[in-house]
Design a protein around this nucleic acid. Structure first.
Lengths: 292, 292
DNA sequence: AGGAGATATAAATCTCATCTATGACCAATA
DNA sequence: TATTGGTCATAGATGAGATTTATATCTCCT
């Protein structure tokens, strides 16, 4: 059955308008073309589909049966095309991003707001998780892009470096005497240290750094969120290792201050992860462009 | 939007099989052809529909949305094609016949039985009515064919003469003395006559016939069905004017006998009516062939 | 390293959908 | 009754584009 589905479109319009000429107009064809197409369909099906009269065409019984099916089919295709246009124009669709809590809150939020304002039809799905989880989500196709702390080495992933983050140690008024001083790592370790929980990338980074200088950093307190790091430091429970940009408000208002060190803490980068060799959804592409 | 719906068929199979090569096989095309078609569809929609991998293709988010619509659409087309095949083969469909009660019962019944046995999937619709009603039904497209008593003159109708009917006068044992005799019309009119009701064709025919011989026939009793004509004659209420073929059983068993006349009653014909210049449904064509 | 599978690309081919031109038919006018 | 304006059908010419063949590229698996 090498049926050309194009014929059904012609049939649909002929039946709908009750006129081959009108169908031709609707399809931007000529009347003989439509006439020929209908004849072809009739030949292939082995049935007469229309009565031809001097003022148009009318469906036969059998044509009417066919129409009841084809009409639905055509409506679905029309809906599909509308949906596709909507997806293309970002009037519809969804954007699924994976990232850590803190990155969402402190880094992505303004972009997400901006994106949502510009494309209110696109649904946002934010998936929180650790870096390995994010990568798994990405590989399983459950998110369109991941936002994580660099570096990442994975052959399947496309990485785009974005924003630069600077980590630092901060304290509250309880340790006010340290303001303005420059501490060595050994001196710093005299004070109670508050770090993010063990499995985070920032934690791993700072642990390695201290080791490379011959020190071992053991936190007094371990917490599970950036907010708690900030809160604990403010209340004088210790010195927190945080990302400077994530506490800029506290630094400005003076509820926290940065501890100067005699070594330079290496900057970290935020990386935007996508699957290599896989096309981005239109929504994801739109978002990538926005944060460029 | 000069969208070739054929592309959706290709898309459907590519998505369904998850492989352009397999889709090509299913569609009796080559792989490059399918590859090209998909690319074209993607270009027209402005969206990427598939991820290409080394072991086939997989739908993108947007492709999956499209598929949800197209799948339904294609299924409907498949169903439509199956239905059309069934209609063509008379595994399905309906046959709508209009006719008089007596013609159905005495003339059409065996054909209808035969037709139903041969094409059990075709539904039969029998519409009873007078000749003018039948013609109206036909012109309104409510029946496929009409079975009526000839003659009919109507430019819009196609008439096919069929069976020949012979009308005659019959009586029961009450008038046994007439058996074997040959009566003139005048003699016949001495007896009470039972005729079919005024609007029937048979009634009009016999009235005209008597008039052409200078007589006027006025029935003692008028009835509305052939069955009553028979019953009344049997019970001796008068002499009924009936179609010989419709009372063959009674003539055989002797409960009625035919009255011989000195004039010949003209035979009537059964005509099969269809609309001129309008294609017959497959079912109707099948039936016409059967009763040839 | 090589083979077997997948898809992509390029250029040549040829089908067949479409067009123009015309005919035939019908209905409603003048 | 002839005319006009609408319908669909038919025939032949044409050209766009679908399809094919041949080849490249890539990935996975042995």
């Amino acid at each position: 059955m090498t049926n050309n589905y194009e014929l059904y479109k012609v049939f649909y319009w002929a039946a709908k308008t009750g006129s081959l000429s009108q169908a031709a107009k609707a399809l931007y064809l000529t009347q003989p073309s439509v006439s020929h197409a209908i004849k072809q369909l009739e030949d292939r099906l082995g049935l007469t589909l229309f009565y031809r009269t001097s003022k148009g065409v009318a469906l036969t019984q059998e044509g009417a049966v066919l129409y009841s099916y084809i009409e639905q089919s055509q409506i679905l295709i029309t809906l599909a095309e509308e949906k596709m246009t909507a997806l293309k124009n970002l009037d519809s669709g969804e954007l699924r991003i994976g990232g850590s809590d803190s990155l969402f809150k402190h880094y992505l939020l303004p972009y997400l707001e901006q994106f949502h304002e510009r494309y209110p039809g696109v649904k946002l799905h934010l998936n929180h998780g650790t870096t390995p989880e994010i990568i798994t989500f990405l590989k399983e196709g459950r998110i369109d892009l991941g936002v994580i702390r660099m570096p990442i080495v994975d052959a399947q992933l496309q990485v785009r470096e974005s924003f630069q983050l600077q980590d630092c140690f901060v304290a509250g008024s309880r340790y006010g005497e340290l303001k303005g001083k420059v501490l060595s790592l050994a001196e710093l370790l005299q004070y109670p240290i508050i770090l993010f929980s063990r499995n985070s990338r920032a934690r791993m980074g700072i642990t390695e750094l201290f080791q490379s200088y011959g020190h071992s950093i053991k936190p007094e307190i371990e917490v599970g969120s950036v907010d708690l790091l900030t809160e604990f430091a403010k209340r004088g429970l210790g010195i927190s290792y945080v990302t400077r940009q994530f506490v800029s408000k506290e630094l400005e208002e003076g509820s926290l201050f940065e501890i100067q060190l005699d070594v330079t803490l290496p900057p970290a980068h935020v990386g935007i992860l996508t699957m290599k060799n896989m096309p981005l959804s239109t929504a994801a592409r739109g978002f990538m462009e926005l944060i460029r």
